[in-house]
């Protein structure tokens, strides 16, 4: 299966095989950190936390789609199931938020291993259909399972006390916890992309038969990146459940899978910072257009069409072309 990237993109994304971060990436990370530290003083913290959760979710998908060349149309399964598990752990078992989030993330990793094992047996378009179908299966399971609360979902999840000591009731203190989780996740993904593992992944994306002939066990690489991607998606979902004190069917539905694909596509597949921009744009749009109902869906559809037809590099991809540096 050929890669999902345009050929001209691969000339832009020239990566350093060594572990050190290029200076302009360091500057962007530092600016992002400063911006996020200042932001809650100007903007509504819950909105910012939503942006951060979805940014992490989109980066997780980008790890699989942009760097592994595998389009999963079912990532809501991992996001949503982690949300359910962490909500259940916090509310019914009364666990502290960090334990609930870890449990949710782990469950997404396990689910990722199961679905990944089956899905990597097909390639390209079939891979997308298989992941979508399994995600729908998870949705039906969530609809019927006794502990998910059916149509209502799990509501009023307590935010609890971090490590049993620090109260998370104020949005402000929770904000900084979410910031640490998101940044930790982003840096981990960045590290994976630029590791030798990430380089092999890129080789598989560009030319799978060649990678096989070089002796790489392609399927174990694909499975590993699938599980990693599912795990980070789970981390995002589990955190989201604690922030919004809610896990619902929306989190596992196919529209959620579509939304996160849109974020990655809009921001720029295979770029480091694209998914962050995509997530910020889409979440902001949803926030402002929430009262218009179906128009949100229509506009998202239009963004899909425009992105595919006119700028497949995405926002950050286009900027990277201008400044001639990989972003």
């Amino acid at each position: 299966m050929t890669a999902i990237t345009d050929t001209n993109e691969s000339t832009i994304v020239v990566e350093q095989a060594s572990g050190s971060m290029p200076r302009h990436h360091l500057v962007i990370f530092a600016l992002l950190l400063l911006l996020s530290l200042a932001a809650p003083f100007f903007l509504y913290p819950v909105f910012l936390m939503k942006v951060m959760c979805f940014a992490l979710f989109a980066c997780a998908l980008n790890l699989l789609l942009g760097f592994g060349g595998l389009l999963s149309f079912g990532h809501a399964a991992f996001f949503g199931s982690a949300a359910y598990v962490s909500a259940h752990a916090a509310r019914v078992w009364g666990l502290t938020p960090e334990v609930a989030i870890i449990l949710g993330t782990l469950s997404a990793a396990v689910l990722g291993a199961v679905i990944g094992l089956l899905a990597i047996r097909r390639q390209g378009i079939y891979f997308a259909m298989v992941t979508l179908a399994f995600a729908q299966m998870v949705y039906f399971a969530a609809l019927q399972a006794p502990f998910t609360g059916g149509e209502d979902g799990i509501q009023n999840v307590p935010r609890g006390d971090l490590f049993g000591a620090i109260s998370m009731r104020s949005d402000f203190s929770l904000y900084f916890v979410v910031l640490v989780i998101t940044f930790g996740g982003l840096l981990a993904i960045y590290r994976i992309i630029h590791s030798p593992f990430g380089q092999v992944l890129k080789a598989i994306r560009e030319n799978e038969p060649r990678a096989i002939s070089l002796g790489y066990r392609v399927n174990s690489y694909k499975l590993t990146v699938f599980v990693l991607s599912a795990t980070f998606a789970g981390l995002a979902g589990a955190t989201k459940a604690i922030v919004f004190q809610l896990a619902s069917l929306t989190d596992v539905y196919w529209t959620m899978s579509g939304e996160v694909v849109l974020m990655v596509l809009l921001g720029g597949m295979g770029t480091v910072f694209g998914p962050l921009v995509g997530a910020a744009v889409i979440v902001t749009m949803q926030n402002y257009l929430a009262s218009f109902g179906a128009w949100v869906t229509i506009i998202q559809g239009c963004i899909f069409v425009i992105s595919v037809m006119l700028f497949r590099e995405g926002i950050v991809g286009v900027i990277a072309k201008w400044i001639r540096k990989p972003l």
């Binding site: 109902g293 559809g301 992105s307």
Partner: peptide
């Protein structure tokens, strides 16, 4: 889109589906 990767066709038609369903719902 025929000269591109097949997955772009999937993404495009997904977008079209969202538009058609959204308009009908409206």
């Amino acid at each position: 889109l025929y000269h591109l990767d097949h997955l772009y066709g999937l993404l495009l038609t997904f977008g079209l589906a969202l538009i058609i369903q959204g308009l009908a719902r409206n």
